[in-house]
């Protein structure tokens, strides 16, 4: 385990929007199978950081070196756009808060899942459909909904479909942006439980951005707290949440509503 190589090595990552600071001087390593939560309020820089890491935004400074399946390492920001796109479609996934941005709403559920398989070279219709059915069931969507479009799905189902679409290619790294935001609490719990199981089964590495500390606690091994574009506290998730040291982290933790329990 200690001899294991990081999947992603981020050093000195900063991004400015003109004079406005997006995020500053972010350093971390992410290992295979590790779930990292980035938390903070809106404007803290967490989404900027996620967009940089997923190569949707080119940072002003710094590097993020990714280790490919063949062991080669490349700085994400020195790759061509075509290479970046291929990575996003094959080795990576990106689960968005709004399923409308992560799904194609006009095509069937089966096509939404099958599309990523075709992108990596699968051509056999029967196999693709079979894999799509398998994945719909894994995310608890009944196989008889395969020909329906996501428009006819509930919010929770759309989000589960988006997860199936992203995981069908067996990615090694998945970015998630508030994946449970906007869902009812009971729907959230079911989705979190599903993500937990899939992560453990597939050994996925995940970088998840959330403002919800309960989501971070349930899903992540490690947490980074951001404020004003900087990482102000980082460590083992339960330690940072149960024994926060920075004033801002203490404020965040103390602001959680204590429900039931």
């Amino acid at each position: 385990m200690t001899a294991e190589q990081p999947l992603l090595t981020v050093r000195g990552l900063s991004h400015y929007y003109g004079n406005q600071l997006g995020c500053r001087d972010v350093d971390f390593d992410l290992y295979p199978g590790e779930v990292l939560a980035i938390v903070g309020e809106s404007g803290s820089g967490k989404t900027t950081l996620l967009n940089c890491l997923s190569t949707q935004l080119t940072p002003s400074e710094g590097s993020a070196v990714y280790r490919f399946r063949d062991g080669n390492r490349k700085n994400l920001f020195c790759m061509s756009e075509a290479e970046q796109r291929t990575l996003l479609r094959t080795d990576w996934g990106f689960v968005r808060q709004n399923p409308r941005e992560g799904l194609r709403m006009g095509v069937s559920a089966g096509a939404n899942v099958g599309e990523r398989l075709m992108a990596i070279g699968n051509r056999h219709y029967g196999n693709i459909r079979e894999t799509a059915i398998d994945w719909l069931q894994r995310v608890e969507i009944s196989a008889d909904r395969i020909d329906d479009t996501p428009r006819t799905f509930s919010g929770g189902m759309q989000q589960r479909l988006q997860i199936a679409r992203n995981l069908v290619t067996g990615p090694r790294l998945v970015f998630m942006d508030e994946p449970t935001g906007g869902l009812d609490v009971s729907v959230q719990a079911r989705l979190l439980d599903l993500i937990r199981r899939l992560v453990a089964d597939m050994g996925l590495a995940i970088i998840i951005v959330t403002h919800d500390l309960a989501v971070a606690r349930l899903l992540s091994h490690r947490i980074m707290v951001m404020k004003d574009g900087k990482v102000i506290e980082t460590g083992l998730t339960d330690q940072v949440l149960d024994d926060p040291h920075q004033a801002y982290t203490q404020l965040l933790v103390s602001s959680i509503l204590q429900v039931g329990a």
């Binding site: 385990m1 200690t2 590790e34």
Partner: peptide, 11 residues
């Protein structure tokens, strides 16, 4: 265990 790397603590 004091100030250990999170991955070590988890192992």
């Amino acid at each position: 265990m004091v100030a250990a790397d999170p991955r070590l603590v988890l192992t």
